[in-house]
């Protein structure tokens, strides 16, 4: 390869510099977020582990089912409690503090969902 002597060290240097943020913070997960759970309820629509990883999938499923298939707007938890399958009128009834619940993790993972561009968050927490 032409100019091998310069290109390869330069590439290594470039990669090293590019990945500094990872080296700099490696092994340090930062301060883990503690989303505040609602006090008056003990049960969510699905197990905590599933909700933690896949709540966005669930929201998409609700949306497509209700908007397109005319699916039910009401769901039942494992213990038989009825809930509204809706972010704005369901989730936020219990998790009524967006800042302390949604934002806690979303900020930590640097995720910026566009839910709130349309959906209204509970008044108390605004």
């Amino acid at each position: 390869m032409y100019g091998k002597g310069r290109i390869i060290p330069a590439l290594i240097l470039f990669l090293g510099l590019m990945t500094t943020p990872m080296w700099y913070k490696s092994g340090d997960a930062g301060k883990m977020p503690k989303p505040e759970k609602p006090k008056d309820y003990t049960e969510c629509v699905a197990p905590t582990a599933y909700m933690r990883t896949s709540h966005m999938v669930l929201l998409n499923e609700w949306r497509d089912d209700i908007l397109r298939e005319g699916g039910s707007r009401v769901g039942k938890t494992a213990n038989g409690t009825e809930y509204v399958r809706s972010l704005q009128n369901g989730c936020m009834k219990c998790h009524n503090d967006k800042k302390k619940f949604c934002d806690a993790c979303h900020n930590y993972t640097s995720v910026k969902p566009y839910c709130w561009d349309c959906h209204l968050q509970p008044k108390e927490a605004m």
Binding site: I66, R73, Q88, N89, Y114, D117, C118, H119, L120, K123
Partner: peptide, 26 residues
């Protein structure tokens, strides 16, 4: 006056009457 039961829309999307499908459902 915002109706807290219904979402708004966002910039850059099309909207129209939905025959109150959300009201029919209940």
């Amino acid at each position: 006056a915002e109706n807290s039961k219904y979402p708004t829309r966002m910039r850059g999307v099309v909207e129209k009457c939905n025959f109150c499908t959300e009201r029919l459902a209940i």
